[in-house]
Structure formats: C-alpha cells, structure tokens
Nucleic acid binder design. Structure first.
Length: 642
RNA sequence: GCGCCCGUAGCUCAGCUGGAUAGAGCGUCUGGCUACGAACCAGAAGGUCGGGUGUUCGAAUCACCCCGGGCGCACCA
C-alpha cells in the first residue's frame, strides 16, 4: 500500500515535470525527517533548480500547485528550502489496507539464480558458513516475496584440494581404507563432520612440518580426478557424508536448496573442454610464449602478466572451471548436467543433485537471466576473473548480470577465543581480530553454536512455562535460538566484518530475533485471549468503514504505528535494490518496537468503546500479519508462546 | 608496491545511493508489573561522523591526500 502510493507519486511527478519543463528526471520519494512534516517528501525542486536557474522553493510551489490530485494524497505543502511534503488520506489509506489492496507481485518469467553456501565438503560447517547461508537464503526469500522466480544452487566441490587433504589424512595418518571410513561414517557414535574437522587441521599441520608429503596431495587429486582406486572411493565417501551433514546443519537454520551441482560432474561431463574451445576460438585467452607464464593459457587484462587459466602441464585452474560453470548457469555452455532427485524437504520442495548418468533427467536447471554468487569478499579477484571471462567471450549482457554478492568474513576477537577456550598463537593474541581458519581448526562450529543457543533458550522457556511438555519446550527453545542466530547474522550490513562475540550472539533482548518474535507472540496472545473470554474476533471489514478508520486515525499515535507496519513491501523493495538483507531485519525490529509500544499503551481487550475496540483489534491483527510476513522473509519462525 | 573494504555515542552497529535538528541496541543512571505475562515500556546522560583539502544552494554520504585497522594481488581453491 505504502509502496504503491510511493510509486504512483513518483510517476505522477516524473510525468508532470516532463510535460511542464521538458526534463526527464527519476523522482525519489523520501521520508521526511520529522513525522509531523507528513508521510512522504519529494525533493525534485532541488534537482530542477540548477537546470531551470530558479530558486528551489519557487519551483516546489509551482509543482505543488499544478500537479493536480493524486489518489490517496490528501495534501501537499512546500517546506524548508524546497521540499514538497505529502500528507496521505488516512481513512482511505487504512481502508485500503483493511481490504487487502496491496497488489499482487508481478509474476515474471525470467529466472534468477542464487548460489550460496558452497562449503568444501571436508569438515563441519562454521559460523562463517552460516553467515553465507543466512545471507543467501534471506536474499532468496526477499526475491521470492517480490514474486521473482528463483533457483537456489549449492555448489559442491567434491573433487578439490580440501577433500583430497582429508582423504590423505585418513589414508596416510590413520591408515584407513575406504571400507574403514565407510564404517566410521556408519558409526552413530561418531560425528563424522567433526572428526574430519580435526583430521583436516592435523593433515594441514603435517604438511607444514613435512613439506615433502605434499606429493600425497598431488597423488590423491590425481586419483580422485581419474575416479579410480581405493583413495578415490574414500574421498567420495568423505564428501558425500559431509554434504549430508552440511544439509542437516543448514536445515536447522531453515535453509533449503533446489539443486546441488557437483564438481565431479563438471569434470566427467567435460564442461571445461567446451569452455576451453570457446575461450580459444573467441580469443579470450592466449598461449603465452615467454616470461614466467610461458606455456600457459592466459587471460589478459586483469594484471600485467594476466591470469593463468590453463597451467603449462595442461591442467585447468579452479577459475577456469568456474568460468565453465558460470557459462552453464546462463545456458551458454552448450552442455548440461543430468539430474536425479536427492531428497524431499518437509514442505514438499525437492532437492536435486547432478549426475553424469544419461539415463537420468536432463535439463531443468540453469538458464538464469541473472546470477548472484554469494561468496565472501576475499574472493572478489577471482569473481572478477570469471566476469572478465564472460566479457572476453562477448557475453557482455551476462557479464553485467553476474553479481558477486560479497560479504565480509566472520572473525573472532582474541577475547572471544579466550571465552570459547580456543588456543591462540602469541602472534594472533596481539591482533584486533583473528580469522576463522579450517586449516588451523580455529573457529566455532555451526552446530555447536546452535546447541549452545538452544540450551540457553531452553532455560528461559523452562522457567517461564514449567507446565508445558518437554517436547514442546524443546521445539520453542529451538525456534527462539534459531531466530536469535539468524537475526544476529543478518543485522550487520554485508561489508561489515563481524567480530563474533558469544555474549552478543546469545542475547535475546534488544535488537534481536526474539524481540521480533515476542512482539508477534504478544499480538497473537491478544487475539487468543479474546476468544478465551468467549468473544468472537470481529468482522473488521463489516464493522470498520472508511469514516470510522479516519476518526480513529486522527490520533497521531495510531497513525504513526499503522504507517510503520504498512511499509513492509517498501522496505523489502529497497532492501532488494540495495542487496541488503540487513535492511529487512532493521525494518522488522522497528515494526516490533512500534507494536510493543502500542501494546503497552493501549489495553485492547478491555477497551469499552466498541468502535475503538474493533479498531484496536484490527490494528493488532494487522501488526501480527505484517510481523509474521517480515519474519518469514528473514527465515524466523514465530513460536506459539514465549 | 598495486587493488578492495572499514573508521559515526563507552561498546556493537544503522544512516534509504547528496537533503531538513546525525539514529538504534547494549552498557550506565532514573522510573514502571492488580491490564493482553517485564524476553517489555518510558525517561536521562552520552557526537569535532579518524584528520585535512576540495566539489555546491547543501557533505557522515562524492573526489583527492594523509593516519589507523582488515583483506586480497599463485601454474592453491
């Protein structure tokens, strides 16, 4: 509702300015600094002032006088040096909300691909991975809330160095063969992804002390690539088991995927060979004849020496494969995976995985019109190489539609390491922040963090609701803990480094997920209490007319609070444009805050005046709906009680 | 050396793409549970927006230069 008036206003001004002054100007609708200035403001007069060589205030007066009536707008006034402040028709606005006028999002045919999570399947997930998944998943929910078709991909690098390293660890450090590892995976008393976490740190340390053992890695990579022998079998068993663990971890957070494209299929289906031909044919890469890159296929332009894509021994670098993969996402490779269903989520969504078996299903994924790669900021150079690759092939449009959805890392402070019992080197102790490192086994495991949060929420729930069953208390504690975690990961904007603080992450008060949940629970409680008292929830549309709404909304308090709650679409829209899930989180908090204030000030059920009571109930129900919707976009569930 | 990110209240962070008197949470202090359960609400204190120069009607926001912190810049991924 708010959003559609914003758009109407913007169009009306743009058209009027075009007709009146012959200037085409995109009009931004702003929010006035103070609420008594009105609900919206247009600053177009400032932009016009320069071109028209007239005082902004004079132009603003002209605009306001001449633009004519706009639906839903009750008045305009010129303020300050040239602002046009807009006042809405409160009764009409509320009546529109009550009737549910918010227009359905426009369904689009084109598909957006969002790739996120992408964890190397060789060890347990840590908080850094959680930030990636929470950002990616929330952005997907934001896009879908706007009616956009979205495909979620979680790329699995099951043949890479990191998996090879753990395979080497099993083989050389623990003398285990594929059968032993499979037995370990089947052993319910062992958390296999945690086991690998430790083993990965061990083998990394071993390489450091015994550099000559790096040939084990090379041999393992070779075996995995050939897909033959016990070591390859072992590596696949590791990757498959760890992928399952990651999917389970992410499901706890409410994160689901559509397809798992795997590196092994990119290899077996020879994606790279096709990309290589394209790159050579269109001269996006060249064979270097001299210098330090002699004998390599190099992509020029990114640095003086260019970026090596194919090594002098003929093997392709990771970026090369990534270019092939990016081409596939746009449907430009001329090759496709085969797919089989991998699992079905509780909500019925089917997760597919790639396969090289031609008997399986062909093309149902890829062919995106835009691609978001949720990858941390440290990899921006490589993302630039991939985009340069598309450009080199002449795919400028797709290059423009390749978006590196980058975010800064989650780091630990030396203090939080001490709290968590993580030992640090003397060097690290002096730093302001310490990078999470799988290689060093340094970090907070995702499942451990969730367990800690759930235990803390459980204490709170237990003390408040001793009468509830243990199972129910557990379920609610989990909802609260996950709400707290998702909000914590989302409240920071993407390019802010999160210095992880356990105390802060564990907080359920103030600007947190549980605060938002609590407001929604309170709204539900009012409506439930009403029915417990034997009263029916009124038929709002029948009892509240436009005049009644206008009458009640003369109270500034009610109007401000309703206004705040009605801006969800506008907030999501801005957040999508800015690429910032944090904006949605902030908005959810503000709505919750407005409701908590309303809740405290106005007893709804005990209101004596019938019209006012129905109005307050409607406000409560509207808040509830908006809070639930916004929380759902953040992936936060609302518990039955708190 | 080159490139990217960050620097805003004691702490952690917003600041809607250049607009009106710079905001929030935490912490501190004061007050509020016989209302729909206080995981809440109200109020107070707290700022040279790292520093400087410029661009213009207007700069936390844009440009340039410093200072401080972080991250990249492989025939690793």
């Amino acid at each position: 509702m708010f959003h559609s008036i914003e758009k109407q206003l913007s169009h009306a001004f743009r058209a009027h300015i075009q007709a009146r002054y012959g200037i085409d100007l995109p009009i931004a609708v702003e929010q006035p600094r103070q609420s008594d200035f009105g609900e919206m403001a247009v600053a177009a007069a400032f932009q016009l002032a320069k071109q028209l060589r007239q005082a902004p205030r004079k132009i603003a007066a002209e605009l306001a006088a001449e633009i004519g009536p706009i639906e839903g707008v009750a008045g305009m006034e010129v303020a300050g040096n040239g602002y046009i402040n807009i006042r809405l028709d409160r009764g009409a606005y509320a009546f529109g909300l009550l009737r549910g006028d918010a227009q359905a999002p426009i369904a689009r045919d084109d598909k957006i691909i969002v790739e996120h999570t992408n964890i190397n399947p060789n060890k347990a997930a840590h908080i850094g991975h959680l930030r990636n998944a929470a950002l990616g998943d929330t952005f997907v929910r934001m896009l879908r809330a706007r009616g956009q078709r979205v495909e979620v991909q979680n790329y699995i690098d099951n043949t890479g160095v990191q998996v090879a390293d753990v395979a080497v660890g099993f083989h050389h450090l623990e003398n285990k063969n594929a059968a032993d590892v499979k037995a370990l995976i089947a052993d319910a008393s062992v958390r296999f992804d945690y086991y690998c976490w430790d083993l990965y740190a061990r083998i990394s340390g071993y390489y450091k002390d015994h550099p000559e053992s790096l040939r084990w890695r090379a041999a393992a990579l070779h075996a995995i690539e050939a897909g033959e022998g016990d070591l390859a079998e072992l590596a696949h068993a590791v990757a498959d088991a760890v992928v399952e663990a990651h999917l389970a971890t992410m499901l706890r957070l409410g994160v689901e995927y559509d397809v798992l494209p795997r590196e092994s299929e990119i290899l077996h289906l020879r994606f790279w060979a096709s990309a290589f031909e394209l790159l050579k044919e269109r001269k996006a890469i060249y064979l270097e004849s001299a210098g330090k890159n002699a004998g390599c296929w190099v992509m020029p332009g990114l640095s003086e020496e260019g970026k090596v894509i194919v090594r002098s021994d003929g093997t392709v670098t990771y970026v090369g494969k990534d270019i092939a993969y990016q081409l596939w996402k746009f449907g430009l490779l001329g090759k496709d995976f085969f797919y089989r269903p991998f699992k079905t989520y509780q909500d019925g969504r089917v997760l597919w995985i790639t396969t090289d078996d031609p008997a399986a299903e062909p093309g149902r994924f890829g062919h995106g019109s835009r691609v978001y790669n949720v990858i941390d900021a440290r990899q921006s150079y490589l993302q630039d190489v991939v985009v340069a690759g598309l450009r080199g092939l002449g795919y400028d449009e797709q290059a423009d539609q390749s978006i590196h959805f980058s975010y800064e890392m989650v780091a630990l402070t030396p203090r939080s390491c001490a709290d968590l019992g993580i030992p640090l080197s003397e060097e690290d102790k002096k730093r302001s922040i310490v990078e999470v490192s799988g290689r060093k086994g340094l970090g907070v495991k995702a499942d451990d963090l969730m367990d800690t949060l759930i235990a803390k929420a459980r204490e709170e729930v237990d003390s408040r609701h001793p009468e509830a069953s243990a199972g129910e208390r557990g379920r609610i504690a989990a909802q609260i803990a996950i709400g707290a975690l998702r909000y914590f990961l989302l409240k920071f904007t993407r390019n802010s480094v999160i210095a992880f603080d356990l105390q802060e992450a564990l907080s359920f008060e103030g600007e947190t997920g549980p605060y938002v949940q609590y407001a929604a629970v309170r709204a539900r409680n009012i409506l439930r209490k009403l029915e417990e008292r034997g009263e029916r929830s009124p038929d709002f549309a029948a009892e509240l007319g436009r005049e009644a709404l206008a009458r009640q909304l003369q109270a500034e308090d009610f109007w401000q609070v309703l206004l705040a709650a009605s801006k969800a679409d506008s907030a999501v829209d801005r957040a999508v444009t800015a690429g910032e899930p944090a904006h949605v989180a902030k908005y959810a908090f503000q709505v919750a805050q407005a409701f908590n204030n309303f809740y405290h000030q106005y007893p709804v059920i005990h209101e004596e005046n019938r019209e006012k009571k129905v109005f307050l109930l409607w406000m409560t129900d509207f808040f509830r709906a908006q809070l639930e919707r916004t929380a759902a976009i953040l992936g936060i569930e609302i518990p039955d009680y708190m």
